[in-house]
Every structure is written in structure tokens, then in C-alpha cells.
Design a protein around this nucleic acid. Structure first.
Length: 168
DNA sequence: TACTCGATCGGA
DNA sequence: CCGATCGAGTAA
């Protein structure tokens, strides 16, 4: 799981092109290549949920790399994140898109992910796979939907995007 | 206990 | 452009 041992911005870039493997309780398996991610980088990042420290909700972010963080947004959409970096250092990568589903809310709908995976480790119902292929081009841009963050944090290029099927 | 707002999406 | 929909966080 060394890919998640990196600082979130590096892990977010490295995760684009990797494959999420979802194993449903009924035995079905869904595979989806990641096309878009965002990094949330510790308590000093005013866009990160952990910017106000440990709370019952954010404690998951303080767990070891490879822990799954799922939360409900706008009362409707589940957001899937993978915790990165050292334990007790709250960093995570938001999965914003996979091939076949563009947008964080659509990703979790596509993969049947809800809060039941929150605070569990990768390797069970959800795991990562690397088939050795990588996107030919990855674009970095500002993160979306974080108008509450400081101007400096809003400007960071911590969103990483690849086009569907752009592989070498 | 009241109130506010959100790492979004789909429809008007 | 607006409404959906609900839990975390904050204030009281």
C-alpha cells in the first residue's frame, strides 16, 4: 500500500490510473479505473475536514494510510476518500471520478459505497489494484467546492484529472 | 435544543 | 438557477 504512504498531494496524483475493486456482499465485483482525485492535506489545509482538529467525524482521517473515509455531503451524496500519510497526520485523497462515473457522488453510487465502509481498511469490500498502465497525461488544477477555504488553499493545484481511456 | 451549512447533483 | 436532504458542528 506504499502508494498511500506518500503525502496526499503526491498520492492523489499517483492514484490516477489505478483501479478500485469493489466486492459486493452478494459476490459481485466491480472494477473501475480512477480518473480524477483531490488531495486534502492535514490540519493546516483550511479545505480539509481536519482543519479544526479531531472530532468524532474526522478521527478517521488520523488513522493509518489505507483507511477508508466515507461521509455524507449535502444530505444526499456519499464521498469516498482514502487516508494517506502517517498515522495521526490527517490527510486523505477524495475519489472524484472513475471510468464510467464522473463526480464524487456518482462514484459512490456506481460502486455501491456508503457509510458502512467508513473507518475500515482497504482490502475487504474495497481494494486497490495496479495493472501497470498509467495515464499518458495528468492535469493538475484547483480543488472544487471549497469556497470556505483560505485563498491560498483554494489556489493549490491539488486536483488531478486524466481523460477516460488515456493510457500507455 | 435551535440553527447553519456543506469536498454535489439533477431538473427547471 | 434552485431545491433536495441530513448530520456534524456550534452556540445557547
Amino acid at each position: 500500500m506504499c502508494i498511500l504512504d506518500m503525502p496526499a498531494p503526491e498520492a492523489a496524483r499517483a492514484l490516477v490510473g489505478k483501479i478500485l475493486v469493489r466486492r459486493l456482499p452478494d459476490g459481485r465485483v466491480i472494477r473501475a479505473r480512477i480518473t480524477e482525485t483531490e488531495a486534502y492535506f492535514g490540519e493546516s489545509d483550511t479545505a480539509c475536514h481536519a482543519c479544526h482538529g479531531r472530532t468524532p467525524r474526522t478521527q478517521v482521517l488520523y488513522r493509518p494510510a489505507g483507511t477508508i473515509y466515507v461521509y455524507l455531503c449535502y444530505g444526499i451524496h456519499w464521498m469516498l476518500n482514502l487516508v494517506t500519510g502517517p498515522e495521526d497526520d490527517p490527510q486523505a485523497v477524495l475519489i472524484r471520478g472513475v471510468e464510467g462515473a464522473s463526480g464524487p457522488g456518482r462514484v459512490t453510487k456506481y460502486l455501491s459505497i456508503d457509510k458502512s465502509l467508513n473507518d475500515t481498511p482497504l482490502g475487504g469490500g474495497l481494494s486497490l489494484e495496479d495493472d501497470g498502465r498509467a495515464p499518458a497525461q495528468i492535469e493538475a488544477s484547483p480543488r472544487v467546492g471549497i469556497g470556505y477555504a483560505s485563498p491560498e488553499d483554494q489556489a493549490r493545484l491539488w486536483r488531478f484529472t486524466a481523460a477516460d481511456g488515456d493510457l500507455r
